[in-house]
Design a protein around this nucleic acid. Structure first.
Lengths: 204, 204
DNA sequence: CACCCGATGTTGAAACTGTCAACATTGAGC
DNA sequence: GCTCAATGTTGACAGTTTCAACATCGGGTG
């Protein structure tokens, strides 16, 4: 029986393989220990091969970040699909998905949020991914407004208020600020209580 | 007239000089462009001198982060001092200080929040600085509870809710997520509206 | 007062990293 | 069947963190 995968000179889907390898390394070596050379090795190619797919290391990190934002966007859309007649529940579940994602993928979250240098060169696909995630949340808020909730309040303010709170809570917990490592369950319970408090404030 | 400062073999206060130099470089080259060698050069010492004061590069970054948290703590204390009889105002102003700090020092904020790897080795003095900042906010909340505000709510929850919101809002704005660079003034106005909304939620 | 030793700073080097230029190999379309 | 653009490789350069071995100083001890 011949070998199952004979090594080809051209990988076939190296770009995605590199992203996947990078995420894998990220998860157990942390962002400080992530080198392009190791990523290349993990994907089974030579140390400079990544440069055929990414202009530099930051571009690979941006791709990872974009993928993360897509998942946040999908979380919003799923919440909208799963509770079609309950805008409050959509709002809650979207936030819960956000929290879960950050807690399950703290290193990816770090690349998504901490990684972005304040004056980093803009990356078109990353910015679009971010815009789509925000738009998905805005949709949920608009559902609520159509249903008569949040009365007398600017939609954009509602989006930013909601986003600030989940974002802050997730990062706080995810980076261990909120008192040495909450359990997953306690974090969710805390998030529920905070959500109810904020909801009351948003409901006039 | 002899030279004003003759070069001494021993610097005298190199540790603080290194921190100051690092912050200066951080502010115009960004975190990616911050190398220990350049910090050392900026402080006028040889490339390995920093290792007599910091076990590694991360330790220097931790020192910068700790300094940042001290300033957040001081902001809370100042708010408490400046409006001794108005716990709501203390709460608002502490948050505004937080926002201002992050907007004025985005690179330092990045070191404080984005920099901390999820499983980084714990640094005692950094952790204490964080704890003190959180405690200062907790004091303000306790003032409010003594005055009969926030009735029927867990103090810790109030702290975390407040902190989540400022933290999230500051990082969102500071990293340009909230729609391409709000002006300083608009950011403050937005923060005011969000604070009022959250306050309503917290006031039963 | 002289000395001496621990703290502080320097030099030099090892190992690793991002990035580029020059070259090799391939497969898809004419 | 050929060619050429896309993709991968090799080798090198400059810059990084970090360490070990050495140099220099200043404050406490005899």
């Amino acid at each position: 029986m011949p070998q199952t995968t004979k090594p080809r000179y051209h990988h076939g889907d190296l770009r995605n393989a590199l992203i996947a390898a990078a995420v894998r390394i990220l998860k157990d070596r942390g962002i400080a220990g992530l080198s392009l050379r190791e990523v290349a090795a993990a994907a089974g190619v030579s140390h400079a091969a990544p440069y055929r797919h990414f202009p530099d290391k930051q571009a690979l990190l941006n791709a990872i970040a974009a993928q993360g934002h897509e998942r946040l966007r999908d979380g919003c859309r799923a919440a909208q699909r799963d509770w079609p007649r309950d805008p409050k529940r959509q709002w809650i579940e979207a936030g819960m998905h956000y929290l879960r994602f950050v807690l399950d993928n703290p290193e990816v979250a770090q690349v998504m949020f901490g990684g972005a240098a304040p004056n980093a060169a803009p990356d078109a696909t990353l910015e679009q991914a971010i815009a789509e995630a925000v738009a998905a949340l805005a949709d949920i808020v608009d559902n609520g407004k159509s249903a008569g909730l949040y009365r007398g309040r600017n939609s954009r303010d509602i989006v930013l208020t909601s986003l600030s709170t989940v974002h802050g809570l997730s990062l706080l917990i995810g980076s261990g600020f909120a008192g040495r490592r909450l359990s997953h369950g306690r974090a969710r319970a805390l998030a529920q209580r905070i959500a109810e408090t904020l909801w009351r404030g948003l409901s006039d």
